[in-house]
Amino acid sequence: MPDDRMNPRSVWVLVCEDDDELGERVAAGLRAAGFIVDLTRNLADAGRNCGTRRYDCLIVDRGLPDGDGLDLIRRQRESGLHMPALVITARDSPADRTEGYASGADDYLTKPFSLGELAGRVRALCARHLRPPAQVLTIGDLVVDRLRRRVQRNGVLLIMTAREFCALELLAARAGTQVSYAELAEYCTETTTVATIEDVVHRLDRKLGEPQLIYATGAGYLLHM
Rank of each mutant, 00 (worst) to 15 (best):
A105I: 08
R150G: 01
T138N: 12
D145A: 12
V156D: 03
R149D: 06
L168H: 05
T191C: 13
L147W: 15
T161C: 00
R97S: 09
G120A: 09
T193W: 07
A124W: 10
G176Q: 06
F113E: 10
R91F: 15
D107W: 12
A195P: 01
V179H: 02
G116M: 13
P133N: 09
E186C: 05
V151D: 05
D92M: 04
V122G: 04
Y108L: 02
Y187Q: 08
A167C: 14
V200S: 02
Y108K: 06
Y181Q: 00
D141H: 15
P132H: 03
A167I: 02
A162P: 04
D199T: 09
N154R: 15
R121N: 06
Q135A: 13
L130G: 02
C166L: 04
R97V: 14
A102K: 09
P132Q: 03
T189P: 01
R97K: 15
Q135L: 08
T189C: 06
A95S: 12
F165D: 11
I159T: 08
T196F: 00
A105Y: 04
V201E: 01
R128D: 06
R91A: 15
L109E: 14
G155C: 11
R153N: 08
L109P: 11
T196R: 06
A95D: 13
F165Y: 10
D106R: 01
A127R: 14
Y108F: 14
P112Q: 14
P94V: 13
R174N: 07
V122D: 10
S180P: 08
T196N: 12
